[in-house]
Design a protein around this nucleic acid. Structure first.
Lengths: 163, 163
DNA sequence: TGCCAAAGTGTTATGAGATAACATCACATA
DNA sequence: TATGTGATGTTATCTCATAACACTTTGGCA
């Protein structure tokens, strides 16, 4: 996503081979679970993985077909909903954007917690998983809440933008 | 906000006196900081405190003037931005709603972290503060991020809706 | 194979959330 | 009282997201 600042943003997007690798893994996992990674779902996941950073829904819509006409909103939103349900992508509500999940392997979690470190300057976004995203769940349990999923959004400046 | 379920929702809204008490405290704090709790800002804060639960921006717009015509969107959005800046209200991005801050006293925090337990069934929302909202900040520090503010949004079911 | 139900997709239209731009007003300070 | 700054009012528009419904694909099963 955005670049408001002047320094380097050397987040190299993954090469085509590793993108396809991740798609293949996702595909295999869907099939194993009796779900289908259909063409539009695959395409949206491709775009998210290729980009390597959060993307707006309407950017996905615009790039859905690189040639010819773009997709319509429901096509992309439905794909995003599916990917989120399968733990392959996350919605980052505070910036209305979507990103491929960093660790789609961690599927056995009772609570799929996702935390993001979002740089308000350059948009660099880093996912935090595991232990570090868990402590809220303890608070929730203490309050009697049963948590389906947790979104933690931390806004600030990344190391590069700090200067 | 919403009620999709059938059980009781006995979140008694605060009485008028205690609402005015909280407004007065907020007002005093603004003045102490050289800021002005102007009429529209005060009105929006009133509505949030009275409600006791998260409110949508357009609900605030509609109720801004109980008699006669409603406010225009920028009036309310600007007031919300101010209240958020002053730590008097929070935006809960994942449900596009706004809520009065539960602990506006905790002002000395270097990082104003706010965590919410949101019931997807009835909309009951509870703020979690202090220790329990902090662990992500450690992760952020380890990654070299400087965090301005953190939003933690936990979705699930509250004790009443669990059954 | 041919039928059916379920899941998925395409398309149109519209609803909800948020902000840009600019004119006007209020207020503290000199 | 002149003046600059910050706040508000107003119009218009932009972005984000979904409802509704027709059509298609898929996989199970007679």
């Amino acid at each position: 996503m955005g670049h408001a600042c002047d320094h380097d943003h050397d987040t190299a997007p993954p090469d085509a081979a590793s993108v396809q690798q991740r798609i293949a893994v996702a595909d295999a996992r869907c099939q194993a679970d009796g779900e289908r990674l259909t063409a539009p779902r695959r395409r949206v996941l491709e775009l998210l993985v290729e980009s390597g950073e959060p993307m707006k829904a309407y950017d996905l819509i615009a790039r859905f077909r690189e040639d010819g006409q773009a997709a319509k909103p429901p096509t992309v939103y439905r794909a995003l909903e599916f990917l989120e349900r399968r733990g392959l992508a996350h919605r980052i509500a505070s910036i209305s954007a979507y990103v491929a999940c960093a660790e789609p392997e961690a599927d056995g979690d009772p609570v799929h917690a996702a935390a993001f470190l979002i740089c308000d300057c350059c948009g660099a976004t880093q996912e935090v998983t595991g232990e570090q995203a868990v402590s809220l769940n303890r608070a929730a349990a203490a309050a009697g809440y049963v948590i389906d999923h947790t979104t933690i959004e931390a806004h600030g400046r990344c190391p590069a933008c700090r200067a």
